[in-house]
Write a protein that binds this DNA or RNA. Sequence first.
DNA 1: TCAATCCCGACGAATTCACTCGGGATTGAG
DNA 2: CTCAATCCCGAGTGAATTCGTCGGGATTGA
Lengths: 139, 139
Amino acid sequence: MVQLGRHYGAGPASLAEIAAEEDLPRAYLEQLVINLREAGLVTSTRGARGGYELAHAPDSITMAEVLRALEGPVAPMLCASEDPGHVGCDRSARCTVNLLWVRVRDAVTGALDSMTLADLVPPRSTLQPIPLQGAVTSS
Amino acid sequence: MVQLGRHYGAGPASLAEIAAEEDLPRAYLEQLVINLREAGLVTSTRGARGGYELAHAPDSITMAEVLRALEGPVAPMLCASEDPGHVGCDRSARCTVNLLWVRVRDAVTGALDSMTLADLVPPRSTLQPIPLQGAVTSS
DNA sequence: TCAATCCCGACGAATTCACTCGGGATTGAG
DNA sequence: CTCAATCCCGAGTGAATTCGTCGGGATTGA
């Protein structure tokens, strides 16, 4: 997750922390992170004070990698999956629409490849601290 | 559907015909075509010998129009819908991932806009008649 | 030893997708 | 005029996917 990118270089982050910051159930995050670990994108440290860390720098991890790890091969339709071993649909011979999906798929992967985790880690300077519409202003 | 593109200029095609050629249930096609009609992409003729026709030339209908008619506004995630009146997700303020989805969406619409129905009507000369692997070869 | 943390498999509810069903409204042909 | 072909329409169903839960086991620093 993006949260991990923000946290990069500060040691492992526990799921409990991330769950609190992202407001998502911890049990759910566990499932997601399993895929990230198997894809080699994050490393885990077990035991007390353990947690997860990015396996390498945020700007060397493309969103395509992340998405593939979380949701499988990019495939707008099953007949246009990235996975070379995908099953062709029965109509494959006459189905010209496949061309369309392949183009869409390439457009998507292009967009995903062009962004890295670092692009989504908000530069602190330009990001407002979310003022909660005037609740606790110091003025 | 593409089938209608092939049929362009030959008078209305009945759903029964299309269903036979595409090997899809007629009742299902009815549902799809309703959206195409409401979007002004096809016109219908009722009564005996009626059917559907493209409302204008295949090369003036982009696949983006077709897809929007059939599946609603392009939206890889609900927080990045084309529809300006979409609901922002609760995290909208701090969620930088939105940027990613908007880019993906634009890549997709770009690809869809660049193709017309005419691109998917197979040029007869280059399309094999599907030989059914050597069943009736004349050699 | 103990508590924090990761690890893992199974389960469940909500939503979406592809498709069916049954019947009504229109209209050309005989 | 009548009839059959065809479009029109809303409701319903079954499977798959997505998002999330639950309970318990394995590791490890303090």
